[in-house]
Design a protein around this nucleic acid. Structure first.
Lengths: 196, 196, 196, 196
DNA sequence: GATGAATGAGATTTCATTCAT
DNA sequence: CATGAATGAAATCTCATTCAT
């Protein structure tokens, strides 16, 4: 697959966009800095003016999606609705936002291990917080007696996010299902599997 | 993480084992051929005597797990038991074998995109057959009226295998759950989510 | 070692001071223009406003010490005192001024070869004049019969300035000897070695 | 200055020789790996097959001269002759061997600061041992009453080795003095300056 | 006067693969 | 069967300098 030269936005924006597309398409390790700057229509020097390293680009892309999803989860988890509804909404939302930012999500799903040592720890902590927030919703449902308790909440959350991460492996925009439809199915499957 | 020099088995076996460990640990692109042969206790010449390329090693590891799981799925799917039981057994089995061959599974889960062009197509076809066999079990249950039909079987299968692939991201041998326990939980969640 | 942002003096003065410290610390080739302007608290544009190039900075530092020492040598060499006394005073003085302007001296001692082609010739000629003036003092003593003649004056001068240049390799302000004490010892050693 | 393609010796030998000439001529930081391998008549890959880095080449050159001179100093210092004779012989020898291995010596004299962090400490320790061995000769002479005691032995040794290091700045093979003549003059100047 | 974004050339290093022995 | 020296292409990154504002 080839992409058209990017012409809009500031240089760092174009670089991030170019990197996102290419990392999503071929994986971090298979993308040369030269390809990124070519797609962004600048020179390598310009890239290193704005980003300290190729790793930094990944970190930026990775972190920005993680921040967005953390923030949205917070909103969805903290409403007044019954816990099952809140969990359903949160599950649906994470699928929809992943599909709507699909390149970014693909980078996110596949490249945690490619982060530089220093960034890896910080990102891992952030991801764990996200995981735990989601898990606490499940536990809340268990405590309320609406979710089964024979399967550990932790495991259920891993199970669900596995499904979400796997979107990157099979979803294509050309498919018949919309982001929302997929999200609803995913959320339905999660809720069904949890029903007490 | 560092590994001990491998001393047992034939040269090609040692090479496969070394490559499996290293690919699982760092990802295909981050492993140098030199590291593999060092761990296997041989030289590069020896490796190129037995394998045509680094890609071949990946192909071998990838293909052998895929073959094994395809074969086992065939056995589990074709029994005389009720379809729900057969699906449960198949789901449990794929989790158990993935955990029991964890390094190989990690390589498998993460490296589909790293396969060389020529091998990629063949492997993709094989994987699709596997996916379709599993899906046909779900469809059989839908036809029999024991599984819900409002969620497409295809999507359910992606959902479940997403969960399985994600094992590589969180499972550690040191955890409290055994392979079988995890497999049972996973299979239970799958069956619950499918119940009509 | 890190240095504090320079805040005093005019912009070109701060640039010279920053460059002097950094060149002394790491050597000309290991210092980036960016570091110099960071330490001086200005931007690159400012530097290129005042200096034509990084080489120019070195040239400035190099030349200013050389000019100072040439001038002082002239004063010390041309007095009415006996030649041995004048040589002793000159030798002492070059050590003292080198220690008192230690960063500048370190740059001077180490960086003759880093000067740009065009500047190198001019500086070499200037240095040779300095060397010859010093040598002529030695020759004057030889002619007067107070210095030995079996060792060529030229060689003695190289010998002594080798010792002086080497100060940059071992002297630290934290040592027990003062600039003057070191200078006296050096001058004593020179005079002793020359005694007829 | 340009050099002729090296054709003799093993590849690592040619690389060391090429690096020695070029480092001596232009200084470590001004020599590109490409120049070294061109002069040695091999490719960059070959160089990195034998040496881990450009730093390693410097370390090798630096260390081999240091080892040689340490060993020779040991021999000269430990004889039965009077201490003044032993010091004279040692001083003469270090000059002669420096001149006879002039390229290596020039690299050694100028490049201590360019050594990589890890190697710098080891080399510094080794150099200090050398310095101390030389100093102990001076102290022995002071204790024996044949050398002056008003100038610290330490300082005298720095003084002398400054002169030796400076050879790299002025000596040329085309000069009128032979290595031995220079050595004798240097040793004479040292001994004269030390006479009680 | 001063900024700092951008360039472009070149630096070191890596690595899968080949091949003479 | 097996070695390991050598290649050559490509990777990431650095940096002095320029120039529109």
């Amino acid at each position: 697959m080839t992409f058209k030269l990017l012409r809009m936005g500031t240089v760092p924006e174009r670089l991030i966009e170019a990197a996102t597309r290419l990392f999503a398409d071929k994986g971090f390790d298979r993308v040369a800095v030269q390809e990124i700057v070519d797609l962004a229509g600048v020179t390598k020097g310009a890239m290193y003016h704005y980003f300290g390293s190729k790793d930094d680009l990944l970190h930026e892309i990775y972190g920005s999606l993680l921040r967005m999803q953390t923030e949205r989860l917070d909103r969805f988890a903290s409403g007044p609705a019954p816990v099952a509804d809140r969990l359903h909404a949160a599950a649906l939302d994470v699928v929809v936002t992943s599909v709507e930012n699909f390149d970014q999500a693909k980078v996110y799903f596949r490249s945690a291990d490619q982060l530089a040592e220093s960034q890896r720890l910080a990102m891992r902590a952030e991801r764990r917080r996200y995981h735990e927030r989601f898990r606490s919703l499940v536990e809340e449902g268990q405590a309320a007696g609406v979710f089964r308790t024979d399967v550990p909440a932790d495991l259920t959350v891993h199970y669900f996010f596995g499904a979400v991460h796997h979107l990157g492996a099979w979803y294509h925009a050309s498919g018949t299902l919309s982001a929302k439809q997929i999200g609803r199915h995913y959320a339905d499957l999660l809720l069904s599997s949890l029903r007490a």
